[in-house]
Computed example of a mutant assay.
Amino acid sequence: MGLKVDNLSGGYAGNQVLKNVSFTIEDGCIIALIGLNGAGKSTTINHIIGELHPQSGQITLNQVNIVEAPTAFKSQIAYIPEQPILYDELTLAEHLHLLLAAHGQDNDKSWDRVSRLLNMFRLQDKQHWLPIHFSKGMRQKVMLVSAFMLEAPLLIIDEPFLGLDTLAQRDVVTLIREQAQLGHSVLMTTHLLASAAKFVDQFVVLNNGQVDFVGTPSALADKYQLSVANLDDYFDLVRKETGA
């Protein structure tokens, strides 16, 4: 089933940013939502996580409609924002306990997953640290642990590689692939198209609030007469086309 965005129009304070956006993420699929700054990527994500109300159209996740059953819809999502969001007064361990409890998963099985993730991102000995002691990269890793430990039906990651070292970037790709292998859907945004092309199933391209292209990395490369390895040049070509 997965996520279905059907003719979504919406935006902020009456300003229409999205115009009849439609795409689907089947179970076990990894989709990268891409486009120039201002194309509508963040607005799309904010609608999917329930921060914005659609002006028209529908968003469903495993046949649960976000407007009709917002709590049931949101309970199926794990979200990693571009900028980490942490509570200053909670330690790392307290953050994880709180989030697991909110999803009814604060048990030994979940903490087995947590331990693996903490070790992977070299945070195992930081569980009693407060956020004030974390670097920007460590804060991002805390967000990654918080999301991946839930094994949610839909994982949304806004710029997953931002602020991460090379080893952590590789670990994130491994975890994303594992989520897909479990049959979960993954939606991510990125400007690193050549890197994403190695593991995503499809790109969904937004341009001026509309879906401009949906297809495989190789199909996107062919459209712009690029090699997959040179897909990062896509943005330069689009800027020249649009004058952006």
Rank of each mutant, 00 (worst) to 15 (best):
K74N: 08
G57V: 01
E68V: 05
M138C: 09
E89R: 10
E94G: 02
A101E: 14
S115T: 08
Y79D: 02
Q127H: 04
H133V: 12
T43D: 08
S75I: 03
T43V: 06
E94R: 05
L90F: 04
P54V: 15
Y79F: 13
M138K: 05
K126D: 12
G35Q: 06
I59T: 06
A147E: 01
A72P: 14
Q124L: 07
G104Y: 07
S110V: 14
L98E: 06
P131F: 06
K74T: 08
F73Y: 15
H103R: 14
T91N: 10
I85H: 12
M149G: 04
L86V: 04
I132N: 13
Q63T: 06
D112Q: 12
I34R: 00
A102K: 07
P131N: 09
H53G: 13
L52T: 09
I66Y: 02
A147V: 02
Q83Y: 13
K74G: 05
R116P: 09
H97E: 08
I34W: 00
T91E: 13
I59E: 00
N65Q: 00
K136M: 08
Q140Y: 05
G35L: 13
I80N: 01
N107M: 06
Q76G: 06
L86K: 07
E89M: 09
D108M: 13
L61D: 02
R113T: 12
D106P: 03
P131E: 10
A102P: 04
N37H: 11
D112V: 11
E94V: 01
K126G: 10
L123F: 02
K74Q: 11
I34E: 01
L123T: 13
G137Q: 12
T71L: 14
L118G: 05
G57D: 11
V64W: 02
W129M: 15
I77R: 00
V67C: 07
P131K: 10
Q63D: 15
Q124P: 05
V64R: 02
Q58N: 11
T43H: 05
H95M: 09
F73C: 10
L90V: 05
A147C: 04
N62C: 13
Y87K: 14
S75M: 15
D108Q: 14
G40Y: 00
D108L: 15
I66C: 11
E89Q: 13
H133E: 15
F134A: 09
Q140F: 03
L144V: 08
Q83V: 15
F73G: 08
S75E: 12
T43I: 07
I85T: 14
G35A: 13
G104R: 12
R122T: 02
D125M: 07
L92N: 12
K74W: 03
L36T: 07
H95I: 00
Q140E: 09
T60S: 10
L117V: 04
S42Q: 02
D88E: 14
L61R: 00
H97R: 15
Q55V: 02
K136N: 13
P54F: 15
D108P: 10
L52K: 12
D125R: 10
L86T: 09
L150V: 04
R113V: 12
H47V: 03
I132W: 09
S56I: 01
Y79W: 12
F121W: 02
G137I: 06
S115Y: 07
N46L: 09
D108C: 12
H53N: 15
L130K: 14
I49Q: 03
R116N: 08
M120S: 10
Q105Y: 05
L100R: 04
R139P: 13
